Amino acid sequence: MSRLGRYWLFFVIVAVGLALSWGQVGRKTERVLQQQSTVYLVAEATCSPRQNPCAAVAADRALVLGPAGNGLALKQAGFETSRIVRIEAAFYGAGEEPLSRTTIDPRTEHWLLDDVSSAAGMVRISVVGNAMLTVAEFPL
């Protein structure tokens, strides 16, 4: 086999391996999403929750995030609160990894995020229920 043929064979093997591995990732993702339905809420275009309340909405539910003292208050509409298991907030800066995470008890009357870092540029709110997951991202 010529030198060029060996290079060609190597790249073909690598390409087939990558295609097969990404196919497995796609199948696993599809399986996870089928088990737990996920709803992504869309935030308002001019959203700035540190200054004014703003909403992230879908067809049948909404989350509203706004200023509250030293933190941010979170309110909801359209959720069955008895079916909410937990609420998670992850604060992100410039990187892919969250700067901090916090969990809110859904049984409390007021949902408050009180440890908001000034370095955070975005917060991802996840409302986890028995058979559903709702995710909203708000710019900070």
Rank of each mutant, 00 (worst) to 15 (best):
M122W: 02
W111G: 00
G121S: 10
S117K: 09
V128P: 02
H110M: 07
P106R: 07
E96C: 01
H110L: 06
D105W: 04
A119Q: 15
T108V: 14
L113R: 03
H110W: 04
P98G: 10
L133M: 14
I104G: 02
L99C: 07
M122R: 15
H110N: 06
V127G: 01
G121T: 10
M132N: 08
E137T: 12
A131T: 15
N130D: 13
T102H: 01
R124D: 07
A120Y: 09
A120T: 04
R107V: 10
V128D: 04
V128S: 06
V135N: 08
S126M: 10
A120P: 07
P139C: 12
A120K: 03
M122I: 08
F138D: 05
E109M: 01
T134Q: 02
E137A: 13
A131D: 13
V128R: 05
I104C: 05
E137Q: 14
A119H: 13
R124H: 09
F138H: 03
D115E: 15
H110V: 08
I104Q: 01
P98M: 10
S100P: 03
D115H: 14
S117C: 04
D105E: 09
T103C: 04
G129F: 03
P139A: 11
R101F: 11
D115K: 14
P139V: 12
E109I: 04
A119W: 13
L113C: 05
T102K: 02
V135Y: 09
A136M: 09
V123T: 13
A119F: 13
L112Y: 08
D115P: 06
A136L: 10
T134L: 01
T108D: 02
V135F: 08
P139R: 14
V116P: 00
L133T: 11
V123Q: 05
D105N: 15
A136D: 04
E137N: 15
G121I: 09
M132L: 10
N130L: 07
S117D: 14
V135R: 12
V135Q: 08
D114T: 15
D105H: 05
E97P: 00
V123W: 05
